[in-house]
């Protein structure tokens, strides 16, 4: 490399050429360095640009590979004669959507999903908020082992518990009940919700709570009126995240619910393959879009708040 002696990565110019990765650098570097590298500016600049173009290309290739199945979803849903391969519909139509837009195919399963996941999320959040309060506020020899236990259960493969859960549900007659399914879904999200809520609650200064106590509020009033509102964004993130996880869960309702009338969308989608003989791919795609839309919207709602710190907490699991 001819510009080897150039000591620093071109502080001045990088700002003007605007590569994102180095944008922050410009401010950090002391100006003396800038002066010394002035001479080697042109080659540096082009090298950075080369790097950026290479990075762009690499990302575009990856994006191209990732987008293909999603493209199929969109194209097939608009194509009355959708095939298995990606091809833009010759005459886009909403036929598929109107075909699945019925009580039996769309509304009942979606309503079931909302009932199961909604009540599950509510239960998770109430239990998590209550449990997080003492864990965050009181010091005890009990707190740390409890939290470690919570974190441990966060990671366990829930899939593996399903066989004993099924036997248990059969014995206590919870099998094929929506509220039983909801209870289990709530429990499966609970460890992670407690963990996150506790961490968010740690961020709320105790002074504000003490002020509420002075005014005669009980711990519960302080929790509901002061702490939870102050945790607003955090609570939103945990709520929506729990909901998304339950909404997408296939295995739990697949095992615990039998009656077609009670199946949520995640399982009823399967009947496109099973019962109707020939698979109508266009309708399957249309229904998939309808089923995915709520979680996509909810994700967009919280995406800005989901920094790295949040995702680190134990994000996706089955």
């Amino acid at each position: 490399m001819s510009d080897a002696p150039a000591p620093a990565p071109a502080p001045g110019p990088s700002g003007t050429s605007g590569p994102i990765g180095t944008g922050a650098r410009t401010g950090l570097l002391p100006s003396p360095t800038a002066a010394t590298t002035r001479t080697s500016r042109p080659p540096r600049l082009s090298r950075q640009r080369r790097q950026r173009v290479a990075a762009d290309l690499g990302l575009l290739v990856a994006a191209g590979a990732f987008v293909v199945p999603l493209l199929w979803l969109v194209f097939a849903s608009l194509d009355a004669e959708a095939k298995l391969k990606v091809s833009p519909p010759s005459s886009p139509t909403m036929e598929n959507f109107s075909a699945v837009w019925t009580d039996e195919i769309t509304f009942t399963p979606m309503l079931n999903s909302f009932l199961i996941c909604g009540s599950g999320t509510l239960l998770t959040m109430v239990c998590a908020a209550l449990a997080a309060y003492p864990l965050s506020r009181y010091r005890s020899r009990f707190g740390r082992p409890y939290l470690l236990g919570i974190l441990f259960t966060t990671c366990l493969p829930i899939t593996a518990v399903m066989v004993p859960i099924y036997s248990l549900f059969v014995q206590i007659n919870l099998i094929d009940t929506m509220w039983g399914t909801s209870l289990f879904l709530a429990t499966s999200q609970l460890p992670f919700a407690i963990w996150l809520m506790k961490n968010f609650m740690d961020g709320v200064p105790i002074v504000l709570e003490e002020a509420a106590w002075t005014d005669g509020a009980s711990w519960f009033q302080a929790l509901v009126r002061v702490i939870v509102p102050l945790m607003g964004p955090g609570v939103t993130v945990v709520t929506i995240y729990s909901f998304i996880m339950m909404w997408g869960n296939f295995f739990v309702p697949f095992m615990l619910l039998l009656d077609p009338e009670k199946l949520p969308a995640s399982v009823s989608i399967y009947t496109f393959f099973g019962n109707y003989g020939v698979v109508v791919y266009g309708e399957l795609a249309a229904f998939s879009i309808l089923y995915s839309t709520p979680v996509l919207l909810l994700y967009i709602l919280i995406s800005r708040r989901m920094g790295g710190g949040f995702t680190l907490g134990g994000g996706v699991k089955g």
């Binding site: 990856a62 994006a63 990732f66 987008v67 293909v68 199945p69 999603l70 199929w72 979803l73 097939a76 298995l84 391969k85 998304i244 909404w247 997408g248 869960n249 296939f250 995640s266 399982v267 989608i269 399967y270 791919y281 399957l284 998939s288 089923y291 995915s292 979680v295 996509l296 994700y299 995406s303 996706v316 089955g318």
Partner: peptide, 20 residues
């Protein structure tokens, strides 16, 4: 795009990759 693939429910992802 990459995140979209992640947010799509598991079973839908299964169908999409099945057709792929």
């Amino acid at each position: 795009i990459v995140i979209c693939a992640w947010v799509v429910p598991e079973i839908v992802a299964g169908f999409l990759l099945y057709t792929f």
